[in-house]
Design a binder for these strands. Sequence first.
DNA 1: AGAGTGACTCATA
DNA 2: CTATGAGCCACTC
Length: 106
Amino acid sequence: MENKNTKSFYSKVYQIVKKIPPGKVATYGQIAKILGTRDARRVGHALHANKDRLVPCHRVVDKNGRLAPNFAFEGSKEQARRLIKEGIALTDEMHVDLSLYLWKKV
DNA sequence: AGAGTGACTCATA
DNA sequence: CTATGAGCCACTC
């Protein structure tokens, strides 16, 4: 039930995440900041609540470039696999190189 | 209404 | 880098 005025915080998160171009990633804190809040947790919860594949949740990582440990759709491995498929190199099974792939809002 | 919980982040060790 | 504690704030019960 989102009014255009009061769009759910979650909906905004989805919109932002959908805007992340392929080959890039964003952090929870970054998104939170764009939305005008400090609480990155809500961003994470928004993605957790969302099951929609339209939202590339795999492109959202934490400040260390680490992927979700367990709560991702098919598991962090699937998330990692998708990132690799988009051309993002992982430093290990659960980490991406933010210095190369961090999305900057143009 | 209050307590518990959390896909986070920061400071500190 | 990891581990803890504290801060943050919406959601669920």
